[in-house]
């Protein structure tokens, strides 16, 4: 008989890790979007900078950040392993596939959307996470608000950045549109009463959160965040 040791190597075990880390990353988005929304106060970044400073120096947050990276890496690694196994499961594809007849395009494109998100994330970390880290470790004063503003108001580069961030937010939206409810399903959390509610919350979350995020670079460029 099989035992619990094989769990993490089994198909359902790997999916379990995908779902759990995915929902964990969703919880991070809630924190991220909440704090960033302080930008809309338009107080020259005073409140936002105070919050950003707290997040950058609080030891509990720093500890959780490690967990966040572990979760992200686990999500990516499992996605790769599962995708490779899935490719192997159908070595010869169909000549004609009518996928639209039975599923949404974004549910079938989670790998592509995830890859776009990863590329976005590399750029995003380079823009904001890395300078903050450097400032914290060199004990330099820095103004996060001004740094963000500079990225999106820097002439042509600024416009390119805004476009890339909006594309990133769009990828996030579609990734969540499938991923949010899919995570619950994978964890076995399917219920006649609650699943329809989870699906509704998932749709609202997948639209609102990326939209609020996208309004930030647009706001800096258009000048309604100041």
């Amino acid at each position: 008989m099989s035992n619990s040791k094989g769990f993490l190597k089994s198909s359902i075990g790997r999916k379990f890790v995908m779902g759990l880390t995915g929902l964990f990353l969703v919880s991070f988005l809630v924190v991220h979007v909440s704090i960033n929304s302080l930008l809309f106060l338009c107080d020259g970044g005073e409140t936002f900078n105070a919050a950003a400073d707290f997040m950058a120096h609080n030891p509990v947050i720093r500890f959780l950040e490690i967990g966040l990276f572990i979760g992200l890496i686990a999500h990516i690694v499992q996605a790769l392993v599962l995708t490779l196994a899935n490719k192997k499961a159908r070595p010869q594809g169909y000549a004609q596939v009518n996928g639209a007849a039975n599923s949404t395009w974004y549910s079938r494109s989670m790998g592509l959307l995830g890859t776009l998100l990863l590329l976005f994330l590399v750029m995003h970390l380079y823009h904001f996470w890395w300078p903050t880290k450097v400032a914290v470790f060199t004990h330099n004063e820095h103004n996060t608000f001004e740094e963000i503003k500079a990225v999106f108001t820097d002439g042509t580069m600024g416009v390119i950045s805004v476009v890339l961030y909006v594309v990133g937010c769009l990828s996030l939206s579609y990734h969540l549109l499938h991923g949010f409810q899919s995570g619950f399903q994978t964890l076995g959390l399917n219920h006649k009463k609650y699943t329809p509610v989870i699906k509704k919350i998932g749709i609202i979350f997948s639209i609102i959160v990326p939209l609020v995020f996208a309004l930030m670079p647009i706001g800096f460029m258009a000048g309604f965040i100041h």
């Binding site: 089994s10 198909s11 899935n86 499961a89």
Partner: peptide, 19 residues
Amino acid sequence: NMVKQMDAEGFGNCTNTGA
């Protein structure tokens, strides 16, 4: 046992597309 056999047969992994 059934999941173990399913994995051994080389089937892919569900991504909840609902197809």
